[in-house]
Amino acid sequence: MAGFADLNLPQGLDKKSLQSLLEAAAHLGYSAVALNHVVDFKEKKQEIVKPVSPSELFPSLPIVQGTSKRIKVLTRLTLIVSDPSHCNLLRSTSANIRLYDIIAVFPKTEKLFHIACTTLDVDLVCINVTEKLPFYFRRPPVNMAIDRGIYFELLYTHAIKDSTMRRYTISNAISLMQICKGKNIVISSAAERPLELRGPYDVANLGLLFGLSESEAKAAVSTNCRATMLHGETRKSACGVVYTVKKPRKVEEEEATLPACKKAKTQA
């Protein structure tokens, strides 16, 4: 079973509040989080810096509740694109971009949404939740994105902060669900304070409000997040990623003892 993950914690905070945010996430049961670095091309002099390494920032990561493992911290880059020329950066093999674990784009227009879904080499497409959708989702790019294994990201913190944004969040989410039918959705927080974070089961329940089914809602905080991370990992390798897990030896021992038992019966 894939553990729960929250793929959007803002990176621009100071170290102390980030630490408390990580502790809150671990306490709520998230086994992986991603630190988000946002680059908005509208503002001048935005350059893509190298990702801060989480192990440098935090010498000891908090332990996830209910497990004995430490929380996994990834790095993520979000590019806010409002002009087609901004996409060139993603196509060029920029050294700094390759260092991030997950790459997301926030398309501002329908044309850019189409480009992001069909051609760009990204893992996540952010959906605007703070204002009325500037365009309608169309089926071809969304289906193409689902085929390519790109996920759509919805944020819920804005819905907690403000009732107008809550309305936009839910309405934009529902209009997306009509097109993608609940597939390839990731729900993450973008929380700046521990009190804005919600537990993974709460978020899954929130997914029901967005029009997902129960299994899709749970996948939106667990398996889809894992798929996104693996999709990001394939970018660094030549063609794919394979994980192997060592099989526990205990099963073999049981099999070995079973025939012996049978033998004893026939003799008697």
């Binding site: 709520l28 819905a159 902060k161 304070r193 804005e196 919600r198 537990g199 709460d202 329940n205 929130l206």
Partner: peptide, 23 residues
């Protein structure tokens, strides 16, 4: 249940101060 749970999840303020319901 879903209505109550989602309402608790999306509650963010108590007397103009931040708060959070943990289910």
């Amino acid at each position: 249940l879903v209505k109550l749970w989602s309402a608790l999840t999306l509650l963010g303020f108590y007397q103009n101060r931040r708060c959070a319901f943990r289910v």
